[in-house]
C-alpha cells in the first residue's frame, strides 16, 4: 500500500486522538511506522494498526477504519488539491477517481495497485458503487466517501449492498445537501 495512505491514517489518528496515540499504536502493533508518501509498504501494517486500535478504543474494525477513512480524506485533499480542481460535488469526484485520479497515480507510481471502482446510476438517483481490490478494504473507501461528502458540504448515506469485507463490495450511495444545523 502506498505510504500516502499510511500518512493519511497517521494524521487522522493524530487529529482524532493525539500524536502520542499514534506512537502507542505503532509500538503496540510492532511495526516500523516510518512512512513516506512515495514509498510502498506492507498491507499488513494497516491490519496490525487496526487490531491494536480496536483494542485501545473499543470500536470494531469496521467502525474504526470508516472513521479513519473519513478523517483521512482531508489530508489527501490538502496533499493533492489538483485532483479537486473544478469538482463541485461528491458524485463528480467519485466518478473521476477511476478515470482521472488513479491514472495520474499510476504515472507517478507505476508499482501502485489502486482499487477499481464501477458505478451505476439507480432510478431513484442513488449511485451504486462497487469496490474491487484484493485488499478487501471497501470499508476504508466507504470512510473516504464520507470524508469527501464532508469536504463538499453534502450528507452521504451509504448502505452496504453486498460483499462486506470481500474483494468486491457494493454500496448504494445517496447524496444530499448537508442539513443546516442551527443553535437557535
Amino acid at each position: 500500500m502506498k505510504g500516502i495512505i499510511y500518512n493519511a491514517v497517521e494524521e487522522a489518528v493524530t487529529e482524532l486522538y493525539s500524536a502520542d496515540t499514534w506512537d502507542d499504536l505503532v509500538e503496540a502493533a510492532g511495526i516500523d511506522g516510518s512512512y513516506t508518501a512515495i514509498g510502498t509498504y506492507d498491507d499488513n501494517d494497516l491490519g496490525r494498526l487496526v487490531t491494536v486500535g480496536c483494542e485501545a478504543t473499543g470500536l470494531d474494525a469496521g467502525e474504526l477504519v470508516r472513521a479513519l477513512g473519513r478523517q483521512a480524506f482531508g489530508h489527501l485533499a490538502r496533499r493533492h488539491p489538483e485532483f479537486l480542481v473544478g469538482m463541485e460535488s461528491t458524485r463528480a469526484f467519485l466518478v473521476s477517481v477511476e478515470d482521472i485520479i488513479h491514472p495520474e497515480v499510476m504515472k507517478l507510481h507505476p508499482d501502485a495497485t489502486p482499487p477499481r471502482f464501477s458505478f451505476e446510476d439507480l432510478p431513484d438517483g442513488t449511485l451504486r458503487m462497487t469496490y474491487h481490490s484484493q485488499r478487501k478494504l471497501g470499508v476504508l473507501a466507504e470512510g473516504l466517501i464520507y470524508g469527501a461528502s464532508d469536504w463538499f458540504g453534502e450528507e452521504a448515506t451509504i448502505t452496504l449492498v453486498d460483499g462486506a469485507g470481500a474483494e468486491r463490495t457494493t454500496y448504494d450511495i445517496a447524496l444530499a445537501p448537508a442539513a443546516v444545523t442551527s443553535d437557535a
Binding site: V26, D32, S34, Y35, T36, A37, I38, G39
Partner: peptide, 11 residues
C-alpha cells in the same frame, strides 16, 4: 524523530 528521519531518508 527517528521515525521521521527514517521516512525522510527513505523518501
Amino acid at each position: 524523530i527517528q521515525r521521521e528521519r527514517t521516512a525522510r531518508e527513505e523518501a
